[in-house]
């Protein structure tokens, strides 16, 4: 399915063209004695946009962080395009993968954080070109040209030389989106990207993300409290509670007519 990857993607590509983009298999995550995820299974297809909702502490953000390898996977497996991410099964045993192999798979994933996490010691352009140059091995010119193009897309064409601290929260987050896109990710993780923003700045960030959703077919995993946005952008919504998926539906169904009482309760509280 070559049309699945119009953004080009990393050359090392996927091992199996038909594999789902993301597979969580019996995933367990514990923090000390606290079990956050206990045997979680779900699959995300290529190009799908999945929104994860649920009360805080239900494990949504942990799922994104596990995919980004920011947390250690306590049990189970995660596959990206059929490739094991951090652990693999070898001769019936669960084995941790080498950092080099992890890095190769991780390269297909990008993430935008709640707190933006731009590098304060670099200007906007350097923030965006840093990884393309030093990870993908692109030339400086090529990386900068692409960065400027992306800055135009997120409406910050004139801010290339600005410093992150000179930008508003909304502008910083748009730079962070451009920075993630500059790596041509196959998967984009959005972790409460508007939660740290003043209300009047939320719109500009969501606007940019709507455009990204419309113009690319990057697979997206979204954790958000912006239900309107979730409804517009996603194909599927997963409702989490206590580390389990308690309901799964298309957004219009989920938001207008959820089956589970727990989902109804939650949506009433946030809408």
């Amino acid at each position: 399915m070559p049309t699945d990857n119009p953004t080009g993607g990393p050359a090392d590509g996927s091992t199996s063209g038909d594999a789902p983009r993301i597979v969580f298999q019996d995933v367990v995550k514990k923090f000390g004695d606290t079990v956050v995820l206990n045997g979680l299974n779900f699959t995300v297809a290529k190009g799908e946009r999945v929104t994860l909702i649920g009360p805080s502490g239900s494990g949504k953000t942990t799922i994104l962080r596990l995919l980004m390898t920011l947390e250690h996977l306590t049990g189970g497996y995660i596959y990206v395009d059929g490739d094991p991410l951090t652990f693999e099964e070898r001769n019936g045993k669960r084995v941790e993968r080498k950092p080099k192999d992890v890095a190769r798979v991780r390269r297909r994933i990008g993430m935008v954080f709640q707190q933006f996490n731009l590098f304060p010691n670099m200007n906007v352009l350097e923030n965006i070109t840093e990884a393309p140059i030093h990870v993908l091995g692109r030339s400086k010119d090529e990386a900068e040209a692409r960065a400027r193009e992306l800055l135009e897309q997120v409406g910050l064409g004139d801010k290339a030389d600005a410093h992150p601290t000179q930008l508003s929260g909304g502008q910083q987050q748009r730079v962070a989106i451009a920075r993630a896109l500059a790596m041509d990710p196959e998967i984009l993780l959005l972790d409460e990207v508007t939660s740290a923003l003043d209300p009047e700045l939320v719109g500009e960030v969501l606007g940019v993300l709507r455009e990204v959703a419309k113009n690319t077919d990057i697979t997206m995993l979204i954790v958000t409290h912006e239900m309107q946005f979730a409804q517009e952008v996603s194909n599927r919504v997963l409702m989490f509670d206590h580390g389990r998926i308690i309901e799964e539906a298309a957004p219009d169904v989920m938001f207008s007519n959820p089956t589970e009482p727990r989902t109804r309760e939650f949506l009433q509280a946030v809408l």
């Binding site: 920011l70 954080f113 707190q115 933006f116 996490n117 590098f119 010691n121 990884a131 990870v135 790596m183």
Partner: peptide
């Protein structure tokens, strides 16, 4: 912590993370 996490999310190698992100700050 977010600085380290952003570096991981961009797949920056350890050496580059130290040199370009952590040490200057």
């Amino acid at each position: 912590k977010g600085q380290w996490e952003a570096a991981t999310a961009l797949s920056l190698p350890k050496s580059r993370t130290w040199r370009a992100v952590i040490v200057p700050q």
